[in-house]
Design a protein around this nucleic acid. Sequence first.
RNA 1: UGGGGGAUCGUCUAGCGGUAGGACGCAUGACUCUGGAUCAUGCUACGGGGGUUCGAAUCCUCCUCCCCCAGCCA
Length: 566
Amino acid sequence: MTVTDPTSPANFIERIIEEDLETNKYDGRVMTRFPPEPNGYLHIGHAKSICLNFGLAETYGGLCNLRFDDTNPTKEEVEYVESIKEDVRWLGFNWDDRLYYASDYFEQLHDYAVQLIKQGQAYVDSLSAEEIREYRGTLTEPGRKSPYRNRSVEENLSLFQSMRAGEFQNGVHVLRAKIDMASGNLNMRDPVMYRILHAEHHRTGDTWCIYPMYDWAHGLCDSIEKITHSICTLEFEDHRPLYEWFLKELGVYQPQQIEFARLNLSQTVMSKRKLLRLVKEGYVNGWDDPRMPTISGLRRRGYTPEAIRDFCERIGVARKDSMVDIKLLEWCVREDLNRRAPRIMGVLRPLRVVVENYPDDTVEELEAINNPEDSTMGTRMVPFSRVLYIERDDFREDPPKKWFRLAPGREVRLRYGYYITCVDVVKDEKTGEIIELRCTYDPATKGGWSPDGRKVRGTLHWVSAEHAIEAEVRLYDYLFIKPNPEEVEEGQDFISNVNPDSLEVLRSCSLEPSVGNAALGSGYQFERLGYFCLDPDSTGSKLIFNRTVTLRDTWAKIEKKMKQDK
RNA sequence: UGGGGGAUCGUCUAGCGGUAGGACGCAUGACUCUGGAUCAUGCUACGGGGGUUCGAAUCCUCCUCCCCCAGCCA
């Protein structure tokens, strides 16, 4: 009970697979697939599915295919295909040469449809879309049989042939499976297999004007690819009987469909439709906006594939609807970046500090550790001079209790530098705004140590004004103000929960000179502030950093608690 | 009032007839040249009622609540 068996299955799907392996159900094979529809960008919910499918294949010595479910040419585009491939690859998964498209199988799918017609199990229906809906019945009432349901095999064959040949306009006919109009499962009430769509397909062009529906195509694609475990989300549970019916009636190889609960993440939305709305209505700046839960957004934000994979592992796999706290995602990226990100000093809201007793013609290079978690990352030199910037937040004219940082008369340590004491505060005469601090330093404390061993609680980050690199920094907060954006007043929708302050742009930040050669996307820890990465909007003359996530901020908690206690 | 699923700490998840565990979160403390990291300690959980059993989160039964399905979307 206290020790987890490391070889035991991590979730119910692994348990099923292990049982199948034991009973030799699929000759010891494990074959999965990730089947996105190329009609939008991948998000963190897809990452869960990707990690699951590719991960399962990996742990059981199987393979996972990447298959585009491109059966609806009116919604799908090559652009999405490319972005999906990039995202899966970036996450660290490899499909080798097993890149497939449902459209690769259109001819086979068509032949199988002909077979079903010949078996008397599919028919061409000529009811309109509205009529089909009416005939389908409701949740509590059975459906009615279409008047076209008893067309002869010959007539069905000929009509279907004409459908394929383009002799009809959109919507005139459909091909339906003949199953059971009285079934309690609506999916079994003669589901549509093919519809007429005179549309250009991103891969097959105008070869086809009839396109297979999901239920018809998906199971057959799985069957053709000899998938063993076809993993999908809970809403397809009702489709499983149909999935099995098609394959059984056709007498072809039958994988098993297994459903799991999709990921919901607090403080964000996950449906493509809603994400699209955020983009279209300008609440964010595109699909890769760092506030978006898309893979491309997370990547731009500075999340690492390792962090995302770790997250997907930690959230587990089950059949229960749930909402994962976004704080777990944040913890995962901190955990990863803490180990790997080089540290630098950067001041977001600079406050000028003049060290009065420091010579104004001197610059010292002080040694700083690149990563205290990893000594192999070495050290670097940072310049120190008479005029510095510190963080405005690190100074209080009238400090509260437990304040370790700078205040009039207080002494603090400048990280890797000297101890300084604030001796004067210079203000703008008109506005009263603090524009400069006058300090003195103790030359004996070079490097941050005092020979007399006196205690200094506060350590501040800083940059030398003369040497600083100016940069823009974008701070991000949650996109929605509520953990569950769907929780709204009557008559409102999730848009009413958009956080108006999810983006704060700081245009004159000062960073230590060593970040001048920062590489795109690589993460840094700005000491005491958080993790940041260079944004692709950067140009040669202007650096732009995104804040990936803050560091844990104990002081903020203390301050918050003190306010609450009052 | 059809069909299909699901209910375990605040959150996610383990458990598969034998003392309900882990992670995140939160709280407190230790340590620290990042109020970071780390470490330690703690935190009102088995939806409810019956039953079987020496023993039930687990098996049976009744109930309650939640989710999904009426696209020629996936």
